[in-house]
Amino acid sequence: RKWEEIAERLREEFNINPEEAREAVEKAGGNEEEARRIVKKRL
């Protein structure tokens, strides 16, 4: 699934746990840019 690939990239890029990465992607509706913004806000 594409969402899992996005979550994996976010996890590696921001050094967050898989659960946090998945939550961000879900919140963003699968949009990678939006997920990235969500993760950055949390850091």
Rank of each mutant, 00 (worst) to 15 (best):
R11T: 12
R37L: 10
K40N: 12
F14N: 02
A24E: 02
W3V: 04
K41R: 08
R42C: 04
E13P: 00
E20N: 04
N15Y: 06
E8P: 01
K2N: 12
R36K: 06
R42N: 15
E20I: 10
N17W: 09
E5L: 12
N15F: 08
N15A: 11
A35I: 02
E20F: 14
A35T: 02
G29H: 13
E33Y: 12
L10G: 00
R36C: 02
E32K: 04
E8S: 10
R11Q: 14
R36M: 05
I6Y: 03
A24F: 05
A7G: 04
A28G: 05
F14G: 01
L10P: 00
N31D: 14
R9C: 06
K40W: 15
E4W: 12
E34F: 07
V25L: 10
G29V: 09
E4D: 11
L43N: 04
A21P: 00
L43R: 04
E23V: 09
A28H: 01
L43D: 03
E13A: 07
K40R: 11
E8N: 13
E12R: 14
L10W: 01
R11V: 15
R36Y: 05
E8F: 13
W3N: 07
R37D: 14
R11P: 00
V25P: 00
R11I: 14
K2S: 13
A28R: 00
E8K: 14
K40H: 15
R37K: 12
I16T: 03
R9F: 04
I6G: 01
E13N: 04
I16H: 01
A7N: 03
E12W: 14
P18R: 13
N31K: 07
N17M: 11
G29E: 11
V39T: 05
E4R: 11
E19P: 05
E33V: 08
P18G: 12
A24S: 05
R9N: 06
L43S: 03
K2C: 04
A21G: 03
K2W: 12
E26N: 08
L43H: 05
E5A: 10
V25W: 03
G30V: 01
R42H: 15
P18F: 14
E12T: 11
R11S: 10
E4V: 08
N17S: 12
E33T: 09
A7I: 12
E8V: 10
K41A: 12
I6H: 02
R37G: 06
N31S: 09
R36D: 01
N15D: 14
I38F: 07
E32L: 08
V39M: 04
E13F: 06
E13K: 05
R22N: 09
K27L: 15
E5P: 03
I38H: 06
A21N: 00
G29F: 12
E20P: 03
I6L: 11
K27D: 14
I16K: 00
R9S: 10
L43M: 07
N31T: 03
L10T: 00
E5T: 07
R37P: 00
E13W: 06
E26D: 08
R22K: 12
K41L: 08
R9L: 08
R22F: 13
E33S: 10
L10N: 00
E12P: 01
E23R: 07
N15R: 12
P18V: 14
K2D: 13
E26V: 11
E8A: 13
W3E: 06
E23N: 08
R11W: 12
E8R: 13
A35D: 00
K2V: 15
R1K: 14
N15L: 09
A35C: 02
K2F: 14
E20T: 07
E4T: 12
A21C: 10
N17F: 11
A35M: 01
E5Y: 07
E19M: 11
R42G: 15
V39G: 01
N17A: 13
R42P: 06
F14S: 02
E8D: 11
R37I: 08
E32C: 05
E33A: 14
K27M: 15
V39P: 01
A24I: 13
K27Q: 15
G29K: 11
L10M: 04
E20M: 15
R42V: 15
E5G: 06
K41G: 07
E5N: 07
N31Y: 06
E13I: 06
F14A: 02
E8G: 09
A28L: 01
I6P: 01
I38P: 01
K40P: 02
G29Y: 10
A21K: 00
K40D: 11
E26K: 09
E8Y: 12
I16R: 01
R37W: 08
E5S: 08
K40L: 15
A35V: 02
A28I: 01
K2Q: 12
A7E: 11
W3C: 04
E34N: 06
E13H: 06
P18N: 12
N31L: 06
E5C: 05
I38S: 05
E20K: 04
E32S: 05
I6E: 03
R11Y: 07
E13D: 07
G30T: 02
A7D: 01
R1A: 14
I16E: 00
A28E: 01
E19C: 03
E20D: 10
G30H: 03
R22C: 06
E33F: 09
P18L: 15
R1S: 13
A24V: 10
R22D: 06
R22E: 08
E5Q: 11
E32N: 03
W3K: 04
R1E: 14
K41Y: 07
E34V: 08
G30R: 02
E32P: 07
W3D: 05
N31Q: 07
E34C: 06
K40Q: 15
A7L: 07
P18H: 14
I16M: 05
N17P: 11
G29A: 13
E26I: 10
P18Y: 14
A7S: 06
G29T: 06
I16C: 05
R9K: 11
R37S: 09
I16Q: 02
F14C: 03
W3P: 05
R11M: 15
K27R: 10
A24M: 05
F14W: 04
L10R: 00
R22L: 13
I16W: 02
E34H: 08
K2M: 14
E19V: 09
E34S: 06
A28N: 02
E12D: 12
E34M: 11
R22T: 09
E8M: 14
E33P: 06
I6N: 01
K40F: 14
E34I: 11
V39E: 02
R9D: 05
R11N: 03
G29W: 10
N31F: 05
E5V: 09
A24G: 02
I16A: 03
G29S: 12
R22A: 11
R1G: 13
R36T: 05
R42W: 15
V39D: 00
W3M: 06
A35F: 01
K2P: 12
N15T: 07
N17Y: 09
N31H: 08
F14K: 00
N17L: 14
A28V: 03
E19W: 12
I16P: 00
E32Q: 06
E8I: 12
A24K: 01
N15P: 11
R37C: 09
I38T: 05
F14L: 04
E23K: 08
N31R: 07
A35Y: 01
I6R: 02
R37Y: 08
G30L: 03
E8C: 10
G29N: 13
V25Y: 03
K27T: 14
R11L: 14
A21T: 02
E23P: 01
V39Y: 03
K27V: 13
L43I: 09
R1P: 10
E19R: 09
A21I: 05
R22M: 15
L43E: 06
R42L: 15
E23L: 11
N17R: 13
K27W: 14
R42T: 15
V25G: 01
E26M: 12
N17V: 08
G30Y: 04
A35P: 00
F14M: 03
A7K: 04
K41N: 09
K27P: 00
R37T: 08
E8W: 13
K27N: 12
E12Y: 13
G29P: 01
A21M: 02
E19F: 11
L43G: 04
E13Q: 07
E13T: 05
E33G: 09
R11E: 10
R36L: 04
R37A: 10
R1M: 13
G29M: 13
E5D: 10
E33M: 08
W3F: 10
P18T: 13
A35R: 00
K40Y: 15
E33L: 09
E4P: 05
V39H: 02
E33K: 08
N17T: 14
K27Y: 14
E32Y: 11
K27F: 14
E20W: 15
A24R: 01
R11D: 02
G30S: 02
E33Q: 12
K2A: 13
F14Y: 09
N17Q: 11
E4K: 11
K2E: 14
E19N: 11
E20Q: 06
W3S: 04
R9H: 06
V25T: 05
E4G: 09
A35K: 00
E4M: 11
R1C: 07
N15I: 04
A24Q: 02
